[in-house]
Design a protein around this nucleic acid. Structure first.
Lengths: 225, 225, 225, 225
DNA sequence: CATGAATGAGTGTTCATTCAT
DNA sequence: GATGAATGAACACTCATTCAT
């Protein structure tokens, strides 16, 4: 994904992410739908392999087995395909039981399950996560979009924390929203460090440590302690 | 800093960061040193304003008040000036009492001081931090370099944690290195969220919450609690 | 109608006007005739709105409510529809009493009626006249075709002038054909200046002045002078 | 100049004439000045040969013997070079005694001299005049610019006409400004018909007839009649 | 050493036209 | 016949880097 190979060249004359945020409607014919699908698939492959910046439209179209001009039948810009890829990946991320943490009585077990699910998902989508990081670092509008999407997750966690505090399970008096932001950030960063930066940690030890830090940070008295 | 404006175009035929990591020696004459200084200053201005990708060499040289060709008297590539700017900023970051946390008896006070120093520094260098994030997301070699530099800080914190554990001040049995990585990551991420993403938090509440989470995560029994 | 907007792009791989001059035969079925009619109508709308160069075939077909591919069922090229539009407009121009100058005794009244009819027609078809100008400036074959068509009008006027000279009504000894060319050109140019360039003249004053200049240029002694 | 040859293709992504109207400053060095000069010369050649639309930047630069990229050292767009060519041609048109009609007592002789000068100039710059016509038909901003420039000439003639009327030399009571516009238009159109459309007239007969029509239209009583 | 003009590889984008369904 | 997806040739344009002066 290093984009600074000797001789490499990049060029863009795009509409930016702000304009690409409102996607055009899907093609109506099955054939069009199929081609669009191939294009999104190809774009994902190329993006994950070369990064957003070094991905050339011609690479994407040739990977999809269509002519360069046909790209514009479906998308207006590289940004727009990227968002289509993102939509697809987001679907995929939600699909199975990922993030479906069992709502049991043991809060620490829940935190552990959540952390594990997050890290395993990160691992599975590691290349895409790096891509997200790149695009966010490049485009302000996309960065803001991403921030807002993250809030939903943060809010949900904040509510859990508040509940644990009310129930007296979490002794920490800290602000739930800030705590949620920071602790979620800690886990996200750990995923980035492991799967993008390549830190040499096993998922198990990561889950153990993160869970312990998280639980202790909230001063949750684990039953079995 | 959005690099995907309509009409924008980027190009590169550079040596990449890997090659730029070994800087050439400084010019010998005072005049040369001065010109180089102006160039680094200009580069910083332009980089912070436009981001690494959208910064054009000609913008940098004209900002510095020198001709385009003269750039190559001092640097071999955009990457190389960037590293020179980075070196300068790193100097600046260490300079005063920043990070000079008083080594007193109260561990929580130390953590608090450290967190505050970090966040204040982040704020001061916010635009540069965003820049770092961008370059790291673009170039693998630079990313690795940054990871390694970060280790020093992590190690230092890990040692502190280990000491607190040995002294029985920190009751947590967690691995000091992992804890240091994750907790440092938490603070770093919080800085990013606040000063790059633009979350609406006051530094004071950030310091309070981060310090509390950090201390509790290590199960440090604060004297006054 | 400016065809040099930022980002605009034009492309052609057409047969040119020379090849389009021999139109294909009309469709046989009523349905086909209707579709062709819609297409010509749509083409006229788009051409008059965007100019010949900026008019895209896809705009024309979508304006006509048919698919892009169906265009070629009726025409071979953009040039060919343009000529079909032209034929239609030419019909329309001749239709009512336009150019039907009463052949009375007062030559000045006839000139006046002719000038007024010309200018009113120009006004009515102003956008199309500008279009003609554009196409003529672009394509040599079309320019020649237009020149030849103009000759008929010029010849007719030349005959009138010759008759007036023979009858001693016009005292000017000037060559009738040249006079006709130049005086007709004067009126045509005036129409262009008024309705394409946007000069701020009322039709009445234009008619008055042009008629007077024309009559005096031929030294026609008006009865009532 | 026919721009619709089979297989021909045109493309543009220009700034339009409106933006090009404010020319950038001249290069400072002699070398730059020389190159710019070669570029303008080459542009004129290519424009006059191929027309504005079919002129490709690469044709201009290769005609000038420089690389394609160097074009942008001097101009931002095809429109901008065109305006530079125009400026050059306008210089050339004014240079010698062209349009320097001797201000004698014989008004008809003056009109004749003026008409001859105009037509001879038209002939000399025939290809460029056709080019002007094309560009005016294509771009609204340029069209307006041209209209305004023409006003100066019209005004000058209008003043002459008014003077002749005051002096009783021109018996016509017609409005001087309108008469000037229309009669000037007549001559301009005649030039266009002869040198662009290719009418088969000799300059002498044109001058004779135009002068006679013009003089009679104003009812100027020539001494020798 | 400084200058700034010159280079040129490289890719996004358009749209008339074709053609499989 | 109609559809609309697919094609692909063609150019403008950028800017890091070089090099003659």
């Amino acid at each position: 994904m290093s984009s600074t190979e000797t001789g490499a060249t990049r060029q863009r004359r795009s509409a930016g992410f702000a304009e690409a945020m409102t996607p055009r409607e899907l093609p109506t014919t099955p054939r069009g739908l199929r081609t669009r699908g191939r294009l999104v698939e190809a774009a994902r492959t190329v993006f994950e392999r070369d990064g957003f910046l070094d991905a050339r439209l011609v690479d994407i179209t040739s990977e999809a087995g269509i002519s360069a001009g046909s790209f514009y039948t479906y998308f207006d810009s590289k940004e727009e395909v990227f968002l289509a890829v993102l939509a697809e990946v987001e679907q995929e991320m939600l699909h199975p039981d990922v993030r479906e943490v069992p709502d049991g009585d043991d809060p620490v077990a829940m935190i552990r399950a959540s952390n594990r699910a997050y890290l395993e998902s990160y691992q599975r989508f590691a290349r895409f996560m790096a891509l997200l990081e790149q695009v966010a670092s490049i485009d302000e509008d996309f960065r803001e979009r991403r921030r807002q999407r993250g809030q939903a997750f943060i809010q949900r966690n904040a509510k859990s924390i508040a509940r644990l505090q009310e129930q007296g399970i979490a002794k920490s008096k800290t602000d739930p929203l800030l705590a949620s932001s920071f602790l979620s950030g800690m886990v996200a960063r750990a995923g980035y460090a492991r799967f993008v930066l390549g830190e040499d940690w096993s998922i198990d030890e990561m889950v153990d440590t993160l869970t312990q830090l998280w639980a202790d940070a909230l001063r949750i008295e684990s039953p079995g302690r």
